[in-house]
Every structure is written in C-alpha cells, then in structure tokens.
C-alpha cells in the first residue's frame, strides 16, 4: 500500500519465533495507513495478541522489518493507545471511570497533582478527559465507581482511556470479547467513527469478524503459522483460508451479510488445546 506520510503508517513484515519447533507465524506483511481500521483474526493461540505486543515493542521478532508510526517498535508508544486483552473491574473497585481515564492521560507521571499549582494545566487535563468521555458516549456513568458499570460501559471507558492522549494508532486486544451482541455492534461502530472522524488508525484483535465487518479496511488472518493480509473481501474467502489452514475450508455468507467459516480443521494438539473446530463464526 502507498502511504501518504511515512510517520503516519505502521508496517509489520516479520517472522516471529516463539517455540523451538519453528515460527509462531511467518510471511506476515501488513501496512496500516492513517485512519484505517484493521482487524487481526485467527484461532486461539495463533499469535494475534503477540502481534500487538510486537507493535508495542514488548516482543522482539525473529526476522523481518517492523515500523510503527515511522520508527522502531516501542519508540512511538506515547502516540499509541493500547487496550490490553479483556480486563474487568469487579464490583468492589471504588474508583470512578473518570479517574481511570485520567490515569491514561498522566498516570505515568511522577508526583501527585497539587491543588492550586498549575491550575491551567489541571483544567486542560480535565477538559481533555471530559471531551474523550463525551466522544465515547460515557458521560452518564463516568462518575460512578467503575466496578458498578456494566461490561459495555467499562469497555467504553477503557477505550476513552486509550484515546485520551490523542493517539495516532490504537491497538485493541479483543475489546468485544464478553460483550453482548448489541454492545459489540455499538462499540464496533464507535471504533469505526473514531477511525473516520479522528483519523486514528485502529488495529483490533477480534474473535468474531461479524460485528466489525462493515467498518473494516483490512484484515490480517493468522492461522497454522501462516498469515494473509488484505481487504476483507480478499482474505476471508474459501481460497485464502483453505490455503492458510492447508485443508478444505469454506466461507459462507448468510442472508444478512454475516460470514460463517465452515470446516475449520481441528488444530493439532501440540499447538493449542483451547482450539475447537467445526462450524463457527468467521475467524472463530
């Protein structure tokens, strides 16, 4: 893909060694442009979260070239919003949603905010937190203890936290996991809106492609040590997935436009035991 400005783009063309028996995945070549919505799909244990860690510079690659926002991974992390794999706050956590968002803004600073000192900066921070909470539509419950918010509400607040520094790249690890269907599509369209309106590149690890399908610009599918990248129409096809899985896989389209992958093979026991097969949603 042609990239308009080098420091806006992220490219990962790499091979990743994880276990002694070979690469976790190889042959991955992904370029994410500004304001693009990219999904990382694949079965459990394929190395989807590891790809996110590579982009954050928390995991070295064996071979290949990785550029994140025009620099080596880990160098531009202040311009990256990161939402780790599903974490939830249990009911006893007595911290407000706004505090969680605020920590995303300056939680890594030393010292404590002192009343009276740097008043304009404090107001600026407060305004920024308010603006981002408004952006994700969480005003109604941002002042409640986060433990008392529902899963969807917590997820919105966490997205606000990831967005509060105005990142150019947003890395989300299974943000839709454990949300109910209406919340999945609501959060998906929120992310699509952020992509389009704020020009933020979004890379999302997903279990099920359907809630995000019509927001997606490109897809990386990782399976069986291989990877394929491209537009959803190019990647989520019977041919590509058959090639990846090295066995007959069919992608069916239901009447309402949902994709279903059929005949996804049982993974070899050595790879992962969390893997189940049969008829599942695409990328399941």
């Amino acid at each position: 893909m042609k990239c308009p400005a080098r420091n806006q783009c992220s490219r990962c063309a790499a091979q990743l060694f994880a276990w002694p028996d070979g690469p976790l995945w190889s042959g991955l070549d992904l370029t994410v442009g500004p304001g693009e919505f990219t999904a990382v799909l694949g079965p459990n244990g394929a190395g989807k979260s590891t790809l996110i860690k590579v982009l954050l510079g928390m995991q070295p690659t064996a071979e290949g070239e990785v550029t994140v926002l025009g620099a080596a991974p880990g160098q531009r992390n202040t311009a990256i919003g990161y939402l780790p794999q599903r974490r939830s706050f249990d009911a006893g956590v007595r911290i407000r949603g706004t505090d969680i968002v605020r920590l995303g803004l300056d939680g890594d600073r030393w010292g404590i905010p002192l009343p009276g000192l740097g008043r304009s900066r404090a107001r600026e921070a407060r305004d920024r937190v308010e603006a981002v909470i408004k952006l994700v539509g969480a005003e109604a419950y941002a002042h409640r203890p986060i433990g008392q918010c529902s899963g969807g509400e917590q997820q919105r607040l966490l997205i606000a936290q990831a967005l509060v520094r105005g990142p150019r790249l947003l890395l989300l690890d299974e943000p839709l996991d454990s949300l109910d269907l209406p919340n999945q599509s609501a959060v998906a369209s929120l992310l699509g809106r952020i992509c389009a309106e704020e020009g933020v590149s979004v890379v999302i690890v997903a279990h099920d492609v359907n809630p995000i399908l019509h927001h997606l610009d490109r897809v990386v599918y990782i399976a069986e040590g291989g990877a394929a990248a491209g537009t959803p129409a190019e990647v989520i096809t019977s041919e590509t997935l058959t090639r990846l899985y090295r066995t007959r896989v069919e992608v069916l389209r239901t009447g309402d436009g949902r994709l279903v992958v059929v005949g996804q093979p049982e993974a070899p026991a050595a790879h992962t035991d969390r893997h189940s097969a049969g008829v599942r949603d695409a990328a399941g």
């Binding site: 990161y82 939402l83 505090d99 969680i100 920590l103 939680g107 890594d108 600073r109």
Partner: peptide, 12 residues
C-alpha cells in the same frame, strides 16, 4: 500517581 495507576490498571 504511578502507584495508583499500577494498582487499578496494571496492564495499561
């Protein structure tokens, strides 16, 4: 502030 961050949200 760092301790608060690490206490409520260690991953991030």
């Amino acid at each position: 502030r760092r301790l608060l961050f690490a206490s409520v949200d260690p991953d991030v």
